[in-house]
Design a protein around this nucleic acid. Structure first.
Lengths: 187, 187
DNA sequence: ATCGATGGAGAACGCTCGTTCTCGACCTGA
DNA sequence: TCAGGTCGAGAACGAGCGTTCTCCATCGAT
């Protein structure tokens, strides 16, 4: 058997590819970035890319799935470092504020992907819904721990802040949503 | 001067073109619909289309602008038929509920356009921001009339309901947002 | 009746896309 | 050393895009 490709190398290449693709897709949009651009960014030959992901759609779904894992892990780590249930819910919006203020923030990758491909790619649509459902479920668990049944409005405030921050390219919706959540929780 | 084209005909053609383009763009996405598809839907020759709008981008902006006028006029007509200030604000969410339940509802055309073209078309981005600003300003005026300073959270709840209804293809976020607004306004 | 400008129908252009193919270099096992 | 399979680099392909051009029928003015 000539020319070996180790399993470890495959893992590394996948990671490089997904990382490059995620940065490009997020910054410029999915349809605006061609596979050649992805190739030059990750340094992998096109042939290898298509061996790892048979179609661009598969790559897009994998990018969204990987980003979802990191996004929710980061949120959870921040939020669950706070002991008090009420403060925990508020910590979600502090985390959102920090996210919105990141350089290169361009809104929610899943909402953007939904706008681009939601009507033409069933797998992408499913991935977007899966991410939103997971976020809502997690948020619902945290809100439920306060004993106050306001999970749905808190979720809608979070989504409203995310979409508004994305369009206006400003972080302040996070604070406004946070203040509203304080009211809903506080009585 | 041979072969006349009256001003009235131009107006009618513009309307037919914008109507056909809006339906197609909203249903399938902007990038997924080619100019040929628009042509066959409106029945106008390509040459005429490009005389009315020199580029596809111009057409897209005009479609969004026309939709914005109708969207806000419809909302305003519904809301301002309600006399009581507090009921007026709640009427916004009744109108949203009816919108979400319309057949063919596929989310907010401006949020979708932002996801598709927000990072590649400055005019489209400006149009999206203009629409959202106009909606927020109008909503702020209605909320201010109640004397309770909750305009921003009410706006975020509306946006959250719109984006969530669009992704999940369900109308219930409108009622949940409405209930939260009742809380913010009421007690 | 004839001329010339105009508009309609759609072919054509140049480009880019996602995807596949070609081909030479390389490495491994015998 | 040699043979054969595999890989990398990039050309190539077919389709579709936005946009422009060609060509002919049509009409008003003379």
């Amino acid at each position: 058997m000539p020319a070996p490709i180790t399993e470890e190398q495959t893992r590394l290449d996948r990671e490089a590819l997904l990382g490059a693709a995620e940065a490009l897709f997020y910054a410029h949009g999915i349809q605006a970035v061609g596979m050649d651009r992805v190739r030059e960014a990750c340094g992998l030959p096109l042939k290898r890319i298509y061996r790892l992901f048979p179609t661009k759609e598969d790559l897009v779904v994998a990018v969204l799935r990987r980003r979802d894992r990191r996004w929710r892990a980061s949120l959870t780590a921040h939020v669950e470092s706070v002991p008090d249930p009420r403060e925990r819910v508020l910590a979600v919006f502090d985390w959102l504020a920090a996210w919105f203020a990141e350089p290169g923030f361009r809104g929610c990758a899943w909402i953007n992907a939904h706008g681009e491909l939601g009507s033409s790619s069933e797998p992408v649509l499913a991935e977007v819904r899966s991410h939103k459902r997971a976020f809502r479920d997690q948020l619902t668990a945290w809100v439920s721990a306060t004993g106050i049944p306001v999970a749905e409005p808190v979720y809608l405030l979070a989504e409203g802040a995310i979409v508004t921050a994305g369009i206006d390219a400003r972080p302040d919706p996070a604070q406004q949503a946070r203040a509203a959540v304080e009211t809903l929780l506080g009585g």
